[in-house]
């Protein structure tokens, strides 16, 4: 591979910088088929927990008037026995696959990570930031020391790369630093943001879980700011995520410091979004006279 869009992130070499965000399909082999067929350069699975989770009852997702989505799917997943079939399917399709992981304890994280590695996964993404499941996620990620402990334990037992996904919190720059110190090869920034929607006629919160994670265009400038700050502070390898809907959004994230990007909500609205982003990026590079997308990473920093 030697195209102008080639991207190296966390030790993986990808055909181009656009991955799917975790949570968009990715818990059944057939989901992997769908994601692969829409052009993503690597597949990120739904978050796996040790045991199967049913997820929440509907409504689990609502499209907002202000743009974007609010979701509380509840980390529905088939548990660790569901990992191998996904990896096998991705291999059949020639796509790198990153297993997203969450747990109630460090032991759970390491156990699932080992299953992922033994199954042949390309990398793991530690979901330390799910905003709507109690005890799993954001509570972990907003404490830099916990981030350090989880990232270190998992990194120390795996040969495959560990990526840490963080959510918006006051101490995110510190948490990012701790994750890197603990051995994370890259950071995914950011997860959805805890939010709420209320139906004004029935007076009830719309999601069955009440709270959900906000995604899509409303969170893009926030995610961009976090990527910018973390890159400035740590010069880390970053996968930008949050409301990226078109190539100009993607270009901004690259300039802010993202080596790769993940697309979620925009894929729900537009099944061609990956190809459109790649076309736009190529034209943009052509206008600028660049022949490698990697040479544009972080260029907004002086």
């Amino acid at each position: 591979m030697s195209g102008i869009l080639n991207t190296r992130i966390a030790g993986l070499t990808l055909e181009h910088p656009v991955l799917n965000a975790s949570g968009i399909l990715g818990s059944d082999p057939e989901h992997i088929d769908i994601l692969a067929s829409h052009g993503f350069s690597a597949i990120v699975t739904k978050t796996f927990t040790l045991n199967p989770r049913e997820g929440y009852n509907p409504p689990i997702l609502v499209e907002l008037r202000s743009g974007g989505f609010l979701n509380a799917i509840g980390l529905a997943n088939p548990g660790i026995q569901g990992i191998k079939p996904l990896v096998d399917r991705a291999k059949l399709l020639g796509k790198p696959i990153i297993i997203s992981i969450s747990g109630n304890s460090i032991e759970e994280f390491t156990k699932i990570a080992e299953v992922a590695e033994d199954s042949g996964a390309s990398a793991v993404e530690l979901n330390l930031s799910c905003p709507h499941v109690k005890g799993l996620g954001l509570e972990l990620g907003s404490d830099p020391f916990t981030v350090f402990l989880v990232a270190r334990e998992v990194s120390s037992i795996l040969k495959i790369p560990v990526i840490v996904k963080l959510g918006l919190s006051d101490r995110i720059i510190e948490s990012a630093g701790k994750a890197l110190e603990a051995g994370a090869r890259a950071l995914t920034l950011i997860n959805t943001i805890r939010a709420l929607a209320i139906d004004i006629y029935s007076f009830k919160p719309i999601l069955s879980n009440i709270y959900g994670g906000l995604s899509g265009p409303p969170i893009k400038p926030i995610a961009l700011r976090v990527v910018y700050d973390v890159y400035r502070e740590h010069r880390a390898e970053i996968i930008g995520c949050g409301g990226i809907s078109n190539w100009t959004d993607a270009a901004e994230f690259i300039l802010a410091g993202a080596r790769a990007i993940q697309v979620g909500s925009a894929f729900l609205k537009n099944r061609k979004v990956v190809y459109e982003i790649l076309e736009g990026i190529k034209k943009w590079m052509n206008v600028l006279g660049y022949s490698s997308v990697e040479s544009l990473v972080g260029r907004s920093h002086v």
């Binding site: 059944d28 057939e30 769908i34 997702l61 989505f69 799917i73 529905a76 729900l268």
Partner: peptide, 18 residues
């Protein structure tokens, strides 16, 4: 469940369609 092709619960196994 979600109606937008995100949760994947309506996958028409074994074919890759939602």
């Amino acid at each position: 469940k979600c109606g937008f092709g995100a949760c994947g619960s309506c996958i028409l196994k074994p074919i890759p369609k939602l």
